[in-house]
Design a binder for these strands. Structure first.
Lengths: 244, 244
DNA sequence: AACGCCTATCCATCATACAAATAGAAGGCT
DNA sequence: AGCCTTCTATTTGTATGATGGATAGGCGTT
């Protein structure tokens, strides 16, 4: 019987189990993975389940499967790390400062530009959604609530950009925020100040001022980025530093 | 027997055929797709092949499959459009001006920042790769050669950013360049001028000047973006305008 | 040492059977 | 009639066995 628990159907659970194991480095990257048959016995499932899991993971660029060669892990640069599943698996295993840094480096490219696009193209409905998230931030009573509202704010800006590629990055931004909150929490000033700074983004979008929207969003992220870079510089000697 | 030809194994060909059909809008988004059994007879393959294709497409966020409900197309915002396959399929079907515009809007966020990061973090080897691509651009004798070198240049900058997320976007950039070339070709000035402008990016990276690298890269893309936006404004009355 | 042939071992594909989930119809209750 | 429950038929989910096809690596010949 299957030795795992989360997920709907067997193939999906198998996919998660295998995907996690690969991302976490439980298999040697230079060797082949166990054969289909071995995976069947190891996980206690049928070949159908294993094959379907393998297919799903190769659709995400994680592995390849060929006759006589077996199932092999592809070079990491082929992994579809913007895929929500892969993103999640990879963060469960190694949310190091370095990864957080890379997250922020991408956010700092995406979000200010998204805010500028929102200022240009957002519909009244989309602007209302941003305003609503901001209001949720303002009235939040618990840190969890505040985080969720914060995430909703950033996501609603992406939607307001009216660009499908920016919208597609909502999972990425969402994950980045959810993970990094543990780090950026200690530094952030009064919640009220944070809310006010978010408010500047909304205001610029409402006023149809792309430049100002970009700068306001940049400011929100840049603070966290500087902090992380300072932390990175500080830990250049201590080997490992993972938050868990 | 299978009614398609490209690809290695059957499941993959099936995946491509089905994926293309879905992206091209050959199935009603509100109805269920044909059942597994029907797809078997339609494509002349076994149920395993169909199921594996379905699994791969659902791994890309294109469809979902549940008992008694059948195979359904997911809302477009769940599609993993940053996945190389999906990107390709979707551009084969609808490379409209609008999509080109969205492409450029993302490039303008990503690439200048990538150039800045390259100026900060690129290794000598990575800088050499950029230089080599530039040289290939300079010495190109055919338009095809020039395009390939151009693509190599932009990709090498992404690699030089030393950020896995930027590197992951290489397929996106590559596709964007390859598709948009048909549009931007007419406007671009002398090839020599273009090469020179690319050279400014390299120079800034070599001089470890992130700000200048960012501006130089921005300049490269902004020109094309303005052109597309002008074209978009012009065609606001004419209904359809697709390049094929 | 270089080359081509062989073979054992993988995955690829197909076919079949049964289990599990559930949408929608059928029926019964108020 | 309207609502709730039950049942059933349909569709995917899972397991298994059989056969085909590709090929890495060994073996033998030159």
């Amino acid at each position: 019987m299957a030795i795992f628990d989360k997920g709907n159907n067997l193939s999906q659970r198998m996919t998660q189990a295998l995907g996690r194991a690969i991302v976490c480095g439980e298999y040697d990257r230079n060797e082949s993975l166990p054969t289909e048959a071995e995976l069947c016995t190891q996980f206690g499932v049928s070949r159908s389940a294993v094959r379907e899991a393998v297919k799903m993971l190769s659709a995400k660029g994680l592995i390849s499967s060929r006759p006589r060669q077996g199932i092999r892990i592809l070079p990491e640069e082929d992994w579809n790390i913007l895929d929500p599943d892969l993103l999640q698996w990879s963060l469960e295993s190694k949310p190091t400062l370095k990864v957080l840094h890379e997250f922020l480096q991408l956010r700092i490219a995406i979000e200010p530009e998204a805010a500028a696009l929102a200022a240009k193209y957002a519909s009244p409905t989309e602007i209302a959604a941003i305003a609503k998230s901001l209001e949720r931030m303002r009235t939040a009573t618990t840190p969890e609530e505040a985080l969720e509202a914060d995430i909703a704010f950033h996501v609603s800006v992406l939607y307001a950009s009216n660009n499908r590629f920016y919208i597609r990055l909502r999972d990425f931004i969402q994950t980045a925020l959810r993970v990094s909150i543990n780090y950026t929490n200690p530094i952030k000033a009064d919640h009220e100040v944070v809310v006010e700074e978010h408010g500047k983004v909304l205001l610029a979008v409402q006023n149809r001022n792309p430049e100002r929207a970009k700068r306001a969003m940049l400011f929100l992220i840049d603070e966290a980025l500087s902090f992380i870079e300072a932390a990175l510089a500080k830990e250049s000697q201590p080997q490992e530093n993972s938050l868990a």
